[in-house]
Structures are given as C-alpha cells and as structure tokens.
Computed example of a mutant assay.
Amino acid sequence: MTDAPDDRPAARVVCLDRDGRVLLLHWYDRVARMDVWEPPGGGIDPGETPLEAARRELTEETGLPGSAVLDRFVAVERDFSWLGVRYVKTEPFFLARFDTVRPHVDPGELTEEEHAAYLGYAWAEELPATVDPPELAKIVERLTEESGGGAH
C-alpha cells in the first residue's frame, strides 16, 4: 500500500428506485482480497464540476441517465483503500431518484480496471455489511430529508 494518501476528487450518486431501494455496485479488491458494495461514482476529470462528474459516472457505470442526478448533495468524509491505494478526501454524494422499480442497470462503459473488479449490482432494501462508506444509511437519510438539512 502506498504511504501517502490519494486525495483525487471524486463524486458519488445515491440512486433510489420507486420503492426506496438503494443501487449498490459490487466490487472485488484483489489486493485486499475483499469485496465491497458502494454507490456508483468516481473521479472528477479536470474542468468538470462535481455534478457533471456524478452524472457522467452514473451513465458510465450503470447505463442510467445522468440527468436523473439532482443538484443536491451531502459532503462525506472518506478514508478507504482500494487496490492498495489509500484515499482520504471529502466526496459529494448526490441524489438520483427513479420512478420505476429496480431500473435496469447496464455497466457498458466500465474501464478495464473496473471490469476486472466488477461483480454485479443490486437494488438493496437493506444495506450489506460490506457497504462503503459504512454510514451510507445516514447519508441516504440526509439526502432525502424534506427540510434539506445538511444538503446543498
């Protein structure tokens, strides 16, 4: 594992279907030899806003329309390792809502690295023990509060 943490900016999307299920992507970290479930998302490219990155990443990783991503996020402190690299940063988690039950996911634009790690996806009613970030349930709650408390 590298000594210096990587702080590359990234954005994630909490997707909710009509019945409130959360879309999670299932990945396998071959370095740590563990699997993890997480919302879609990834790095912010130079010149891209966090919202633009969230919309692009959603489409690339799931085939779902990026236009579903709302301009509403919560900032989430992250400290995790992936493929031997430690990431320490604050990521915006955006919200996307879908009017159907379990919209079809087609991860057609994964990178080579993502293809090697991708195990599938689920529209989860309950969050698995290996969800990242571990406080995802609280993030979903904050994103969906009617009053907007804590969201931007």
Results as ranks from 00 to 15, higher is better:
Pro46His: 14
Phe93Ala: 05
Gly84Ser: 00
Ala4Asp: 14
Glu114Arg: 03
His104Glu: 13
Val36Gln: 07
His104Asn: 03
Ala122Pro: 00
Ala124Ile: 02
Glu113Gln: 12
Arg18Gly: 10
Leu64Ala: 02
Ala54Cys: 11
Met1Asn: 01
Tyr118Arg: 02
Val105Phe: 09
Ala124Thr: 11
Leu25Ile: 14
Arg21Trp: 15
Val140Cys: 11
Glu114Leu: 06
Arg102Asn: 10
Ser81Arg: 15
Phe80Ser: 12
Val76His: 02
Asp45Ile: 03
Asp79Ile: 06
Arg102Pro: 01
Thr100Leu: 09
Ala10Cys: 11
Glu141Met: 00
Ala4His: 12
Tyr118Lys: 09
Asp35Ile: 06
Gly20Glu: 13
Val69Phe: 02
Arg78Lys: 13
Glu135Arg: 02
Phe94His: 00
Gly148Val: 07
Leu143Asp: 08
Ala122Ser: 15
Thr2Met: 15
Ala129Ser: 15
Gly108Met: 12
Arg142Met: 08
Thr59Arg: 05
Glu135Trp: 04
Pro9Val: 08
Phe80Met: 07
Arg30Lys: 04
Glu141Ala: 08
Asp3Glu: 10
Val88Trp: 09
His104Val: 09
Thr62Pro: 00
Asp45Pro: 02
Gly108Glu: 09
Gly47Ile: 03
Arg86His: 10
Asp7Cys: 06
Asp79Tyr: 04
Glu91Asn: 08
Gly84Glu: 00
Pro5Met: 13
Asp132Pro: 03
Asp99Leu: 15
Leu23Lys: 07
Pro65Leu: 02
